[in-house]
Computed example of a mutant assay.
Amino acid sequence: MTTSIADLRKSYERAELNEDASHAAPLQQFDQWLKEAISAEVPEPNAMTLATVGSDMRPSTRIVLIKGYDERGIVWFTNYESRKGRQLAGNPYAAIQFHWVELERVVRIEGVVEKVSDEESDEYFHSRPLDSRIGAWASPQSQVISGRSVLVANAAKYGAQFMLKPPRPPHWGGYRLKPDQWEFWQGRKSRLHDRLRYRLDGTDWVRERLAP
């Protein structure tokens, strides 16, 4: 018997999100939820969807991994010459989304993106496993290649060239999204979900409830 996609549905009843129990600052709320996702051992709690828009006004998304966060913003690392890197060079505004399915929670973050310092990029790059550091040299990310053999050959080439000490490629480093808007979504019964938005007003965060 085939199940129709339109008939797939779930009742969300795990938790609630209200103003009294939430933090006044969005970073504190995010810190709490991320730690709870890690403690709950949800699959890849650090995975986030990154959305950017190119010069053709077409949005695109991909999964990246958060590598740091503080009052300055959300940090990840990638190839600056990739599709997302080229799009961010032309339009620095982006959106991020975390979806922790098992906890019935979503976090959405919007803001402007900037590159992190060379020192931050160097520090993180040299903390990566050797294969990952070689991979940053081996992959011309987002470019068309003739086959996987290109990657294998490049990895062998740069592995022989750099041995155990590959430097950080000049085209590779970190980005930081500086949030001006956060939204925390908690699934609730009867599709009456909880949505709290924090928007930046000057230097202050304004917390508002949105209808689901």
Score class of each variant (00 low, 15 high):
40 A>N: 14
160 A>E: 09
211 A>Q: 09
59 P>S: 10
98 F>V: 00
96 I>D: 06
20 D>E: 12
5 I>N: 03
49 T>N: 09
148 R>W: 09
19 E>N: 11
128 R>D: 07
20 D>S: 05
158 Y>I: 09
147 G>R: 00
146 S>W: 00
126 H>N: 04
85 G>Q: 04
175 Y>A: 11
90 G>W: 04
132 S>K: 04
2 T>L: 07
59 P>D: 15
92 P>N: 10
76 W>N: 03
4 S>K: 15
23 H>V: 07
70 D>F: 00
134 I>A: 01
196 L>Y: 00
108 R>V: 07
130 L>K: 08
79 N>H: 07
101 V>W: 09
36 E>H: 09
65 L>Q: 06
78 T>C: 14
208 E>K: 15
201 D>P: 03
21 A>W: 08
112 V>I: 15
183 E>M: 04
171 H>L: 04
79 N>L: 06
207 R>F: 04
140 P>A: 09
64 V>N: 11
62 R>E: 00
167 P>M: 03
32 Q>I: 09
66 I>M: 02
132 S>E: 08
26 P>W: 01
131 D>H: 07
8 L>K: 08
157 K>T: 11
149 S>Y: 01
174 G>S: 13
196 L>T: 01
157 K>V: 06
198 Y>E: 14
154 N>R: 03
74 I>S: 02
41 E>N: 14
103 L>M: 15
170 P>M: 08
200 L>I: 13
119 E>C: 05
182 W>G: 01
161 Q>V: 15
25 A>E: 06
71 E>H: 13
131 D>N: 06
123 E>Q: 14
204 D>Y: 02
91 N>M: 09
114 E>Q: 03
86 R>S: 13
207 R>G: 05
45 P>F: 04
142 S>D: 00
30 F>I: 10
25 A>Q: 09
143 Q>L: 05
208 E>Q: 15
126 H>P: 03
118 D>G: 10
187 G>C: 12
69 Y>W: 00
185 W>D: 04
42 V>N: 00
116 V>G: 02
83 R>C: 10
180 D>E: 14
191 R>D: 07
189 K>I: 11
41 E>M: 11
54 G>P: 03
134 I>F: 00
37 A>I: 11
134 I>G: 00
23 H>A: 10
40 A>C: 06
163 M>N: 11
164 L>W: 11
40 A>F: 09
27 L>G: 04
7 D>E: 10
52 T>W: 13
36 E>M: 12
97 Q>H: 08
208 E>T: 15
50 L>S: 11
9 R>N: 02
207 R>T: 14
123 E>I: 09
5 I>T: 15
205 W>M: 06
60 S>A: 00
70 D>L: 05
125 F>Q: 10
177 L>G: 00
148 R>Y: 13
196 L>S: 00
99 H>Y: 12
155 A>T: 15
101 V>F: 11
15 A>G: 10
117 S>C: 10
